[in-house]
Each structure stands twice: as structure tokens, then as C-alpha cells.
């Protein structure tokens, strides 16, 4: 079980690996599309990698509700709980 802080830093690593964005730019209030400029293909890659890293399942119908990094962190924390 990872803390929200651990999930955030893990997610930041995945996003950095995929997009090259610095990890410290991945903050809870950032929007994936508006702030981080992540397209749908990259978003799906991030989801696949996050599922593997955090041993969770994020169904497609839930992915569209993950607007911000914070949404994703909360979702993963809950899915792990």
C-alpha cells in the first residue's frame, strides 16, 4: 500500500518517462490535457504503466474522469485500499 505522496512521485516518474516533463512539474492540481499537454495516446500509456506499477485496474470508463493528477492519485489510492 502506497501513501498518496508515494503514488504522486511514482506517477510523476511514469509521466516523466513518457513525456520528458520534469517530475516536479507533476503536481496534484495539474490537468493532464491543459497543463501537461498529454494526448490521449500518451494518457493510455501512462494508465497501462500505472496499472502495472500500483497493481490496480483503471477501466476506460474511469480514465475519462481523471482530469487532474490529483484525480489519478486519489483514484489509485482508493483502488489500492
Amino acid at each position: 500500500m502506497a501513501s498518496e505522496q508515494e503514488i504522486l512521485s511514482g506517477l510523476a516518474e511514469i509521466i516523466n518517462e513518457e513525456t520528458g516533463l520534469p517530475t516536479d512539474s507533476v503536481e496534484l492540481d495539474k490537468s493532464f490535457t491543459e497543463d501537461l499537454d498529454i494526448d490521449s495516446l500518451s494518457m493510455m500509456t501512462i494508465v497501462v504503466n500505472a496499472e502495472e506499477k500500483f497493481s490496480v485496474r483503471i477501466p476506460d470508463e474511469d480514465v475519462k474522469n481523471l482530469k487532474t493528477v490529483g484525480d489519478a492519485v486519489s483514484y489509485i489510492a482508493q483502488a489500492q485500499g
Partner: peptide
């Protein structure tokens, strides 16, 4: 690992 792990790219 199954279909879900195949990358979108």
C-alpha cells in the same frame, strides 16, 4: 502479461 499491458503506441 495479457492484452491490457500492450502499449497504446
Amino acid at each position: 502479461k495479457g492484452a491490457r499491458r500492450v502499449l497504446p503506441l
